[in-house]
Simulated assay, not measured.
Amino acid sequence: MAGGWRCAGVRWPGEVPELGWGKGAERRTSVLGYGAWLGFRAVGERSCVGARGNVCPLGAAVPGRSTGGRCAECARLDRAHSVAADTLLDDPRPYRVYLAWFGPGLVKVGITGERRGAARLREQGAVAFSWLGRGPLMAARRSEEVLRAALGVPDRIPYAGKRAVRGRLPGPEERAAEVTELYGRAAELAGRGWPESLERLPLHVVDQVGVFGLDRSPAPDRSVRELVGGGVVAGRLVAAAGPDLHLAVDGGGVVVLDTRLITGWELVAVTAGEGAGVRVPLLDIGGGGVQGGLF
């Protein structure tokens, strides 16, 4: 493994995105600002980011298109300690059930630790959301399953689907109306499948378009398919949602960078004066096809 700093992806501890970095056991973060220049060149090859804050003991290589950034063993260890794996059955902390809206027809129900607030919703790129209830982990999990089945919503929505609609979102009234309608359907189930230990929370639609900067940036037209050694991604950050950074690039247009693709790469800064642009394989998400070459 190279000795430089390697990216650990985007975090949303508050309403401003941050990039995490690691070098061995060292950690640091970079706060990202809309309008600021962001440019880097990938060095060498991509390596596993490890699990639970520990360095990968194998220093394993990771495929460029993997959004996990971990080798199979580290991915297994990381998931084994997650809420999604149902291995923390005795967790005494309170959890919240939420209804998340990503675009017309793109809705999911999920749970998150109450202490995290809305960080999980920002990490997923939820354009709007409302809390549904709060209570112990297993009560929240049971309610999540009941609501998914009753509302006919999936347990996950691929990021490609979220990107496809993000540039043509309806207005705030329409966004709130869809969340409100689904909340009403969920509320009708209270007493018919909701565990008694889950406290129902009132409707309060939180719209995150402004937090993500989507209300003041052009719609994206391309996305990064993968990084390659020596590849360059550079532009001005105009929006961010979940792991995605929207970059206005030289020559026009907005390119989406899924930062899950850059975890494990050693990156070196590229300045605006270097005439950088984007020189990695791209996907056309504006209605065209695949851009297979390096740009």
Score class of each variant (00 low, 15 high):
3 G>H: 12
10 V>M: 10
12 W>P: 06
12 W>R: 10
15 E>M: 04
16 V>G: 08
21 W>H: 04
23 K>A: 11
24 G>A: 00
26 E>T: 05
27 R>T: 04
34 Y>S: 02
37 W>F: 03
38 L>S: 09
40 F>H: 03
44 G>E: 03
48 C>L: 14
49 V>F: 07
51 A>V: 07
53 G>Y: 11
55 V>C: 04
58 L>R: 12
59 G>A: 06
61 A>P: 11
65 R>N: 13
66 S>W: 11
69 G>I: 14
71 C>I: 02
76 R>D: 14
81 H>E: 15
82 S>V: 10
86 D>M: 06
91 D>L: 03
95 Y>Q: 02
96 R>C: 06
101 W>C: 00
104 P>R: 01
104 P>I: 00
107 V>T: 09
109 V>M: 06
112 T>Y: 08
112 T>C: 11
112 T>L: 09
113 G>I: 01
113 G>E: 14
114 E>F: 06
120 R>W: 00
123 E>P: 08
123 E>N: 10
125 G>E: 02
129 F>D: 00
136 P>A: 13
137 L>R: 06
153 V>R: 03
154 P>S: 03
155 D>E: 10
156 R>G: 05
157 I>G: 01
166 R>H: 05
167 G>N: 09
169 L>R: 01
169 L>N: 01
171 G>H: 12
172 P>R: 15
175 R>K: 08
176 A>I: 05
177 A>H: 00
177 A>F: 01
180 T>N: 00
181 E>L: 04
182 L>M: 11
182 L>Y: 00
186 A>P: 07
188 E>N: 04
191 G>M: 11
197 S>D: 15
199 E>D: 11
201 L>K: 10
202 P>K: 05
206 V>T: 13
212 F>I: 01
228 V>R: 15
229 G>T: 09
234 A>T: 12
236 R>Q: 09
236 R>F: 13
240 A>N: 10
245 L>K: 05
246 H>I: 12
248 A>R: 15
248 A>K: 15
250 D>S: 12
253 G>M: 15
260 R>V: 12
261 L>H: 07
262 I>C: 14
267 L>P: 08
269 A>K: 14
270 V>L: 10
270 V>C: 07
271 T>F: 08
272 A>S: 13
274 E>G: 07
277 G>W: 13
279 R>S: 15
280 V>A: 08
280 V>C: 07
283 L>R: 15
288 G>P: 07
